[in-house]
Amino acid sequence: MADMELKASGAREYITFRIGAQYYCIDIMSVREIRGWTPATQLPRAPGFVRGVINLRGVVLPIIDLADRLGFDPTEPTARHVIIVAQTGRQVVGLLVDAVSDIINMPAEKVQPTPDVGSEAARAFVLGVMAIDDRMISLIALESVMPTLAGEAA
């Protein structure tokens, strides 16, 4: 559904970031702000990719370690790591990434379908890929990386 939207509206802006040596991006319209890493309060019984929660001006913000979520080794966060505060629907989360690199403008037809790879995480969390200069940038499916809301299931 999201890629149909892309096609309908032509070019879109994406914010690109780095996890290890790979580049990823999300739609800039879902990004609320970018901030530095602050220690999170650990949540009991949370999946490993949920680093905990931080206080974002009075809002309890869950932090997702995107590296862990995508199947890499968990991040060892330092003050140089970055949290991208992103929103889908009414849910707001912080995505922990290594560094934010760029804002790119990409016509919808340049977003190619995800190549058929073996990695389950890649198939589940990558909406499509795009080529810029000599890099490949994967577009993250934000809805899928978010933790499921218990309230919605009930």
Partner: peptide
């Protein structure tokens, strides 16, 4: 502060 709005229910919390 609600945990549910952005995350979900946590057993014991």
């Amino acid at each position: 502060k609600s945990l549910e709005s952005n995350y979900g229910h946590v057993e014991g919390i």
